[in-house]
Amino acid sequence: MTEETKTFEPVIIGFTCNWCSYRAADLAGTSRMKYAPNVRLIRLMCSGRLDPTFVFKAFAGGADAVLVSGCHPGDCHYANQNFKAMRRYHLMERVLNQLGIESGRLKLLWASAAEGQIFANEITKFVEQVRLLGPLNWNTTSAEIPTEAAKEEVTA
């Protein structure tokens, strides 16, 4: 392990669904389970809400990895929308590869509202995995893509 990878603290953006994985994160909190402080969570109502743009935006904005999490297949609060997230996950994996980003920087995690421990453990594992991959030295100017214009495009 080089000096750099030892001290490298990856920044990870995590997408959680309101019903299972965000509550798993809450449970990890109320149970005072400890995990690595590298993940910053965004709450969506459902993992099905995850627009692949969000993931690419996170990478472009400087994140070293992205976590996508939702209810277990079959447990979706909205019938089966997490399956749609799963399909998009595989699609995004391929696109990332084409962009030259290791697929290990994108993780799909199913966690029910009762699985705080699993959520915490998996985050710590993921952080270690990304630490080994090193920083994502994506062209930092890409973050300078006029974001306002990009936003208008997607919301138009």
């Binding site: 953006i13 965004i42 969000f54 996170a58 904005g61 400087g62 936003k151 997607v154 919301t155």
Partner: peptide, 22 residues
């Protein structure tokens, strides 16, 4: 568009979360 969780809301949140990193 999704009320309360619109694209611009989420994208801006990503921006904010990564402000320091950037």
């Amino acid at each position: 568009s999704g009320t309360g969780f619109s694209n611009i809301q989420i994208l801006s949140q990503i921006d904010g979360l990564l402000l320091l990193t950037l």
